[in-house]
Amino acid sequence: MRRRGQLYLVFILIFSGLVLGQKTPHFYNVDKEIRVEGPIQEINMEPRYVDTSPFLIIKLKDTKTQQMYNIELSPVWFFEQNFYKGEVLVVVGSLYVSGDNNLNIIAREVRFRGETLILRDKHGFPNWRGGKMKRQGRKKGKEF
């Protein structure tokens, strides 16, 4: 009887996970990866996904095409980095077009000021999503 109860518990938890873990509309599509470079036009925190904090959205104008892109960065980057209007970024990410015909990029890599921020791996899976500012102080080996 007890074993059966445990079995039910396992099924319920797994099933609930499948339901709760259902995906939201936008996903990282590696086949639609592009690279854009240009100055930041605007920086905002905007809602993007259900039940998560608003994302950091950087509006960037591509220097070559003069197209405007909304660059999506997870909320943690709002505190992790300081971005400014006019600063030039090189962004690699997955392009998707939203219902209002806006061009959006889910950022995988951002280069600026001699540094590269790796936000996702090459398969689009996010890096370092949690822990947020705790991870700011993470030591890459010994620090003084």
Binding site: V10, L13, I14, S16, G17, L18, L20, G21, P126, N127, W128, R129, G130
Partner: peptide, 10 residues
């Protein structure tokens, strides 16, 4: 392992 909502994100 089996429950996507409990699995670690990273």
């Amino acid at each position: 392992i089996l429950n996507p909502s409990l699995m670690a994100d990273s």
